[in-house]
Design a protein around this nucleic acid. Sequence first.
RNA 1: GCCUCCAUCGUCUAGGGGACUAGGACAUCGCCCUUUCAAGGCGGAAACAGGGGUUCGAAUCCCCUUGGAGGUACCA
Length: 468
Amino acid sequence: MIRVRFAPSPTGALHIGGAHTALFNYLFAKRLEGKFILRIEDTDKERSSKEYEEVILESLKWMGIEWDEGPYYQSQRLDLYREKANELLQKGLAYECFCTPEELKERREMMVKMGRPPKYDGRCRDLSEDQKRDFRAKGLKSVLRIRIPDGKSFLRDAVKGDVSFANDSLGGDMVIMKSDSYPTYNFAVVVDDIDMDITHVIRGDDHLTNTFKQMIIYKAFGKELPKFAHIPLLLGPDKAKLSKRHGAESVLEYKEMGYLSDALFNFLSLLGWTPKEGQEIFSRDELISMFCLAKLNSNPAVFDMKRLDWMNSQYIKNMDDQNLFYLAKAFYDKAGIEVVKDDFTLKAINLGKVRARTLQDLVIGTKYFFVEPELSAEEMDSINSNNSTALLLEKFLELLNNGYDSHMDLENKSREMVASLNLAFKDLVHPLRLLVTGMKVGPGLFEIVDALGKDIVIRRVSKFLNDA
RNA sequence: GCCUCCAUCGUCUAGGGGACUAGGACAUCGCCCUUUCAAGGCGGAAACAGGGGUUCGAAUCCCCUUGGAGGUACCA
């Protein structure tokens, strides 16, 4: 049974990079009918918060990344880590260290200054019982460090291929239990991954060094390694690791901007992976059925908003009007526009969806269906500047009152009318559009008029004619 | 500094020794359509970082250089 995990730490919202990692874990698990486990890594007492944790769960749900097990909380598994750490202590594979953070920092800086790589010097490796007693008597708290053996470690990574790493450059014997008797990240991860029978660890490239540290811990426990897959990081336009500096980065922010979960899911899947040449739009099921770890790219990808916009617009324009309504409802609400699901609203959505990149765009582009447009003085002037406008509008209202079969029919009748007056068609269309929608751009005018209905159009046009 | 990873159009990528005149998509430009803006259709411009090898033959394999990224904590 394949078992993978996504293990965010609740020290911030779920960001796009995290979602990308979660997504690949999810696709992999689904493809091989395995389990996707969610684990909250909240061993940083200072920075972890319940709020962030909730945001992460909500983000995953919105993305449609459902977990099969968990969430497990590391903060509730402290006894296990202590027990396992003690095991290593008993075996002599770990030892107590009384160096203070200040001392360590000082020594590190010194080493860097001397042009040497910063590394713990192992001075507490072989303390005598007397020495330890002295330290404790002075009130010093100890951490537990694991001994890092000499030599080189080899990793067969599912996406990177073979990587080797000298244990010597791992930074010296590493801390596994902090002085507050909480486990460190690397230790808790390994204890949990072993305990939870994780078979494949799929995580960001930035963990590559951690993997080599963790391999030491696996070895200390005499456990088999899971398969590792380090997927490339997502980059911002400046090619640096995607972060807050690049603007929107949290998953929920994309939701609020009006991106569809399906579109983001699709878009993120194609960052670092090509399921099939010549196709860009894939359903979740297609992505799951085609997923293959070995086909992931090993080079990092830039997160391109323009491409996301395009993909989102594809999903919007191909979605049926009813479903789009359900998704857009929240955005109308937020804009203070009251909408109900009726033919009128669905027609508005149908006309608007072709030119919307986001749900926000859709709301802006269909607002005039629900709210009387307001024209600026400048726009009024532009309408008034042509002295045949009033005549054209009056004639148009007559046509409208006389009835028509379809928007095509109405358009033909309008063209004939304008031609009979020897005037230009655009002199009718542009002012009419502005009066009816308050905008200079949008769907076909006669489709709008038809969808809006006679009453609304007559009201908006007459208001202008009467004021003039 | 040291360690590790990475390197094809601006961006996402196809490519795993000859099918490459390097293909597709987004973005961009032009044209068509047209009452506008989109959408759609058609077309254009646009890349193998550089240098050495290996080979009859290299975008593809190896090495070096350069560039970029990540890591280097009692953070995760």
